[in-house]
């Protein structure tokens, strides 16, 4: 079977050769390309379109966005005095939106049985979720900005910058939590507990000491928020880096 093939020497064409050379060079240089370079490569190779593995995910995302929109803009009794509530809501909702969405994706892969195949691809499920987290953060920040701009137009009390910084801080602080838990690969329970304590903690803080909580949200100097935001964003990138390099198919959920 093999002998007959011996005389035929396959010559690679130029393109192939180019690719092989690149590959060899890449392998020679391998070990930890910078995080941003690998991100760039991922963006090039995957493209944003493929971030969503299933159309139902896209539908789901739009529905979530719509719901949030409805809550904000159609709900007529949102009084001007409830500014603090708006802040709290932003702080709470931004990250939870992402989380619910990620869990949905994950569950979707498991129920459809595509998890295994995707896990053996160059970019595995966790790298994709981490990558998508980044994309989602960016989209959420933009969306929040737009939403808050809408608020500001409706309710004069809401300072645009403050609301934006608060919601973004919420997103990053939570994302750091989330990545950390995924990175440590504990159990489904841990993830549930983290999400639960995020929600409960915030709601409880508000119940127990509403004025302090509101004070924090409304009156805490922006600089403090900005610092927290920078810290969280930094940790976020660090964790994202670690996360994208790690492969453990046995999973977390």
């Amino acid at each position: 079977m093999m002998r007959k093939e011996k005389m035929h020497i396959p010559m690679p064409d130029d393109e192939r050769m180019e690719m092989e050379i690149k590959k060899i060079v890449a392998q020679g240089l391998r070990r930890q390309p910078s995080f941003w370079v690998s991100l760039q490569t991922i963006v090039q190779q995957i493209g944003f379109r493929q971030l969503f593995s299933d159309r139902s995910e896209q539908v789901y995302l739009w529905m979530m966005a719509l719901m949030v929109g409805v809550i904000f803009f159609v709900k007529p009794d949102l009084a001007v005095e409830q500014v603090a509530d708006v802040y709290a809501f932003l702080f709470l909702v931004s990250p939870v939106l992402f989380f619910v969405f990620s869990v949905y994706t994950y569950a979707n892969k498991i129920t459809n049985g595509t998890y295994e195949v995707e896990m053996t691809c160059k970019y595995d499920v966790y790298q994709m979720i981490a990558f998508r987290m980044l994309a989602f953060s960016i989209v959420t920040i933009v969306m929040n900005a737009a939403m808050i701009a809408g608020f500001v137009a409706l309710y004069e009390n809401v300072a645009f910058l403050r609301a934006l910084v608060i919601s973004t801080t919420g997103l990053f602080v939570f994302s750091v939590f989330f990545l950390f838990v995924m990175w440590k690969r504990r159990s489904t329970m841990t993830v549930v507990v983290v999400i639960g304590s995020w929600l409960l903690g915030n709601i409880l803080a508000k119940q127990v000491n509403a004025s302090l909580y509101n004070d924090m949200l409304v009156h805490l100097p922006l600089v403090v928020y900005a610092l927290v935001l920078i810290g969280a964003a930094y940790m976020y990138v660090q964790l994202l880096k670690k996360f994208m390099r790690q492969h453990n198919a046995e999973g977390v959920f």
């Binding site: 593995s53 979707n108 459809n112 049985g113 595509t114 998890y115 195949v117 160059k122 492969h247």
Partner: peptide
């Protein structure tokens, strides 16, 4: 890690897919 996965082709016993694709 991904260096190996780049070389790998795998078909699981249960091959799943996205229904609308």
């Amino acid at each position: 890690e991904e260096t190996y996965r780049t070389l790998l082709g795998y078909l699981p016993q249960q091959f799943g897919f996205y229904k609308n694709y």
